[in-house]
Amino acid sequence: MSPVPIRRAPVTELTARERASRVLDDGTFRELIDPFENMISPHLAPQGITPQSDDGVVVARGAIDGVSAVVLAIEGAFQGGGVGEVGGAKIAGALELALRDAEAGLAIRPVLFLETGGIRLQEANLGLLAIAEIHAAIAALRRHVPVVGVCTGMIGCFGGMGIAAGLCSHLVVTPQARVGLNGPEVIEQEAGIAELDSADRAETWRTVGGEQRVAVGLADMLVPDDAEAVRRAVREIFRAGPIADDRCRSARIEHYRARLAALDPRQPLDGPTLRVLWEDDQEVGS
């Protein structure tokens, strides 16, 4: 018998910087406000937390299929990817510059790697402000170009950044991803273990996992935990071009209102049941 080690580059194993670099055309990665500029959060050290010199956000320029691109990647390994004042401003500022380019008729391809629990609690209101700016920028930008969100795991994408994921015109996920508003731990803490046992990982993934989100139409593309597959998926989306704004999930308010109204909250609802009820909802993007 000969050894057959699994040879893959799992995207979940990559740092934010590596993710950004791997999605861009080879050799085009160029970082803005890189760690050597030392733009760090002033709020962490007073609270006894070691800051990071990029504040956990990588802003990268480069090209995707030869077209100018901007990649915003959140480092989940630093403070659970929490968005604070500096990191949030880096993302919002980059998206606003991308919007200016798009409005001027210049080609730009925005990609967001979202590994984050949402707002960094230590910076509360400042993170909240930044996230509001991010939301506004994504909503404006997607009228011009696809705004591609990528959730790979293992942190997941929750809170205000879960909303940002929902606003993206296209959302790419791996089976390891989790996307939602409240994270499983928060749901357990607030609603009790009977509502959701966050230690039951399979149950968590059946509810907010990548595969489930694609099956019920709340994400668009499911790709394996592989950097090459993510790179291909992102390219495929940009080649297909933008979709009409009213086809974006967050614009289809009446559609989702009707879907929710049809559910009976008194009946227990689990992931597999929702899949059956909503299986016809995979029309966006894919």
């Binding site: 699994i6 795991g153 293992m154 089976p175 390891q176 230690a199 039951d200 990982r201 399979a202 149950e203 993934w205 996992g209 990548g210 595969e211």
Partner: peptide
């Protein structure tokens, strides 16, 4: 990855599955 190595035969308990 371990499930893949086992040819799909290893059935990890629920609390260890992240997919």
């Amino acid at each position: 990855d371990l499930v893949e190595w086992s040819g799909g035969l290893y059935e990890p308990p629920s609390r260890l599955r992240s997919w």
